[in-house]
């Protein structure tokens, strides 16, 4: 076997960190799409089945682009399906938030809102990436993500400011998911990518926090009290970086999710579908 076939446009020293970055973002999109795929046909109304399917579709599309590009950057001839179907849970680099179970509609929506607020600021910043492939992808993904955020934020406000029951459920969802938001504050060890302008913005986390604080106030919902006693990170969720999903540390929920996603494909190695 020969070594990787590097892209001529890519600075060789950036290759490992760019590959990791693409897998982190691709896994983020795919794992959340997979969770949403489990909701379709179980949504509170038909319009919601359609909206959730639509968001899931966009995320699958984003993951496919990111994985395809990851394959080019890696230079070993791997395609999108390799990264989705033939890696194990320890190799997945998504934030833990997106692997959390669907729960009730409040959990599904709050998880989506926390994610979308991150994803929108991420893609906005990536439009200025020095990497032309990523900048082009960001232009499209930003528009899609703006719709996703409008949808999830709209629901968070309606649930928070709806009935007593919906308020209670939304607050419970926030409280239970809050600890997973530390991953959204920043991605560790991407300094090289920041310095080279491939990932131009290192302050997505601050912007994420501003969006979340404003929307939750609008929704009459509270940010969990642990915020004020947090250590260091700007989101205040305070989980330490060693447990970050971006580094391959996961909750017990990722394994079964991947098992369902991958089982059929893995039962037929080499088959076309």
């Amino acid at each position: 076997m020969t070594g990787p076939d590097l892209l001529p446009s890519l600075q060789p020293s950036l290759q490992p960190s760019l590959l990791t970055h693409l897998l982190r973002q691709g896994d983020r999109a795919l794992v959340l799409a997979q969770r949403l795929g489990q909701v379709i046909t179980h949504a509170p109304e038909l319009e919601e089945d359609m909206a959730i399917a639509n968001i899931s579709l966009d995320l699958i599309g984003q993951a496919r682009h990111l994985y395809t590009y990851a394959g080019e950057v890696e230079g070993l001839g791997h395609d999108e399906n390799h990264f989705a179907y033939w890696r194990s849970a320890e190799e997945f680099l998504n934030p833990q938030l997106v692997e959390q179970p669907n729960g009730d509609f409040a959990v599904t929506i709050v998880r989506q809102f926390f994610h979308d607020a991150y994803a929108l600021h991420y893609w906005e910043s990536m439009e200025a990436s020095s990497d032309a492939t990523l900048a082009a992808l960001a232009a499209r993904a930003r528009k899609e993500t703006a719709f996703h955020l409008r949808h999830s934020q709209g629901w968070v406000v309606r649930l928070g400011d709806g009935t007593d029951e919906s308020h209670r459920r939304a607050q419970l969802a926030i409280d239970s998911l809050w600890r997973f938001t530390s991953d959204l504050a920043s991605i560790p060890d991407e300094t090289e990518l920041h310095d080279s302008g491939v990932v131009p913005d290192s302050e997505v986390g601050e912007r994420w926090r501003d969006t979340v604080v404003a929307a939750l106030a609008d929704a009459t919902l509270d940010i969990p009290a642990s915020t004020s006693t947090s250590t260091g990170t700007s989101t205040g969720a305070g989980t330490d970086m060693a447990s970050s999903g971006w580094q391959g540390h996961h909750s017990s929920h990722l394994g079964p999710l991947l098992e369902e996603l991958q089982a059929l494909t893995r039962a037929h190695p080499g088959a076309e579908w």
């Binding site: 179980h42 949504a43 509170p44 509609f105 649930l159 029951e165 919906s166």
Partner: peptide, 8 residues
């Protein structure tokens, strides 16, 4: 399961 959501 969606009744409370529609009500909200």
């Amino acid at each position: 399961d969606g009744a409370w959501v529609r009500e909200a």
